[in-house]
Design a binder for these strands. Structure first.
Lengths: 302, 302
DNA sequence: TAGTATCCATACAAAAATGTATGGACGTAT
DNA sequence: ATACGTCCATACATTTTTGTATGGATACTA
């Protein structure tokens, strides 16, 4: 029972993504009969039915749906391999893929990456923003910026410092609704918070001043939308101090309710020898440390 | 610049493992010219030289060595996929791959797996023993038993309890050398300890009674060899209480120097729907919890 | 209801990958 | 030194894979 040709899974992924043999063939630059034969071969090999022919396209079976995440892992590994291979020449050129939380990616990274580009114009950057940690393990990215301790031996990690979070609201909102004086006052305010992200909910419950989820009148798992809502004057929410400090219209409330999350820049150790990834890694560490300093009132600056 | 056919990496791995085109061809059931063409194609595609022809075989270049771990990741993903696929029929049959520390694998798992086999004779077990955590992330295994908190969202984890470790020596050794009365006395004894494993060294340094590495007169990263040396009466070393309790000849010394490591049985969430893995997972959790109870003097047993 | 645009299946032709056979190079053993 | 084994490269034959062309089925639209 030898493994099926790995290429069959590539076709399988395309069919799952596109919903039809023809579309998958277009995606891969092959033809519809070829993809059809690939699926036949795969089903025969695995001894399962992967698709049922239904009106309006192919319907994946349960088997296909169960297989999908594994096939995606395979693809992630292959993509990683390609990126690694493209960095083998001792050239500092090619693509580096970074993953980070949405707020970091939108509010913090742009200037860092811009300055990186000035020094190394041959490096291309891919940025994947998500709050899911999964990415680096699956090797969906070369480098990750995360507020979670890197517990894996196989990762090269650099500690940035603790990123401070605080409660903020827009000046207009506070002018209209007043500022809460203590924790109890929050009951009268529009709170912006987490929706269903497991990690965030866990963090929330671990706080000394736990807020139940139903206390939030706006819920989202995208922290970037929290920020946008705060800016729009919807209510009170959590925001990175370093980001809020740049916007005079945002005012801190209840400063005693703060939170500091340790942050790391992380890379897989297999990439340590890769000059290109190494360069980006170092630039991110430098840039993030600079950002970290901005959130403190900094005495040694002129 | 499309990706090379994933199958080329399979040939690459075989060449790296075997050291020659011909041997790789034999491993894969292909022929030497085919493998040769694969390598040509891969080198051309990646625009790197992977091998230099030297007397007595092929010499991998630095590029090939850098690529190797990534290619191995690809293979791990493919193997995982095969195992997942073989469990798609709602049959409880096929292979489940488990990884665990060497001591757990040799001292604790055998009876658990034996009883599992009585209930489910159609399940085949692969057991990979290593102290490296990497395996599950790379999907080298379906299920892992580890003494490290599973920090990844994508993992389904069941907490077993804290596994107690203590200092032990063989009765014969103590009869000959006496038992140490306090921490200072250890200087006069043959100590068995860790060699260079990063995680173990870190753990060692974090203890309230740190031992420098040079204090050990026997060093190994295989905990199983610690156990074997203790049994042979070489000296004093750390051992799981649950294992030592079964052997009257092993005696605890300095009982105040103990250590408890939380343990988990862990599985990737993608496998949750896989009846076969689920069955093994549940059996391991049950078995490990039973083991955990043996290390405590258990009052509620007859 | 006929026209159009998808889709997939099939038959046949072209292209690509693989295998077979052989020769030369190198190292080792007798 | 010569015989043997193993290695890789090359030329040629075969098999396998892919593409092209076409037909039937289904859905949407005018």
């Amino acid at each position: 029972m030898a493994d099926p040709d790995w290429g069959l899974y590539r076709s399988f992924l395309a069919v799952m993504a596109q919903g039809s043999l023809s579309a998958a063939a277009r995606e891969l630059g092959l033809t519809q009969p070829t993809i059809g034969r690939h699926m036949d071969e795969l089903q025969h090999h695995l001894n399962v039915v992967l698709f049922t022919r239904s009106s309006g396209g192919l319907q994946p079976t349960d088997a296909a749906l169960n297989l999908l995440p594994h096939a995606e892992t395979l693809k992630a590994a292959a993509d990683m391999l390609s990126r690694a291979a493209s960095g083998l020449g001792d050239d500092v050129r090619g693509t580096v893929r970074i993953t980070a939380s949405d707020v970091i990616g939108v509010e913090v990274l742009p200037p860092i990456l811009t300055s990186l580009r000035n020094d190394h114009p041959d490096i291309e950057i891919e940025l994947a923003l998500s709050n899911r940690m999964e990415d680096l393990l699956r090797r969906d990215a070369d480098i990750a910026i995360r507020m979670v301790p890197p517990s894996q031996d196989a990762l090269v990690a650099k500690h940035i410092g603790a990123i401070d979070l605080g409660m903020y609201a827009h000046h207009d909102y506070l002018a209209q609704n007043g500022a809460p004086e203590d924790f109890e006052d929050l009951a009268d305010h529009a709170l912006i918070g987490v929706d269903r992200d497991a990690r965030d909910l866990r963090l929330l419950h671990s706080l000394p001043w736990p807020l139940a989820k139903h206390r939030f009148s706006f819920r989202s798992d995208q922290h970037l939308s929290h920020l946008a809502m705060i800016r729009a004057g919807y209510g009170i929410g959590m925001c990175q101090v370093g980001v809020a400090l740049r916007e005079p219209a945002l005012q801190r409330v209840l400063p005693e309710f703060s939170l500091a999350l340790d942050s790391w820049v992380t890379m897989h150790e297999d990439l340590r020898n890769n000059l290109r990834c190494r360069t980006v890694f170092d630039a991110l560490v430098r840039g993030m440390k600079t950002y970290w300093r901005t959130q403190k009132p900094d005495p040694q600056l002129a």
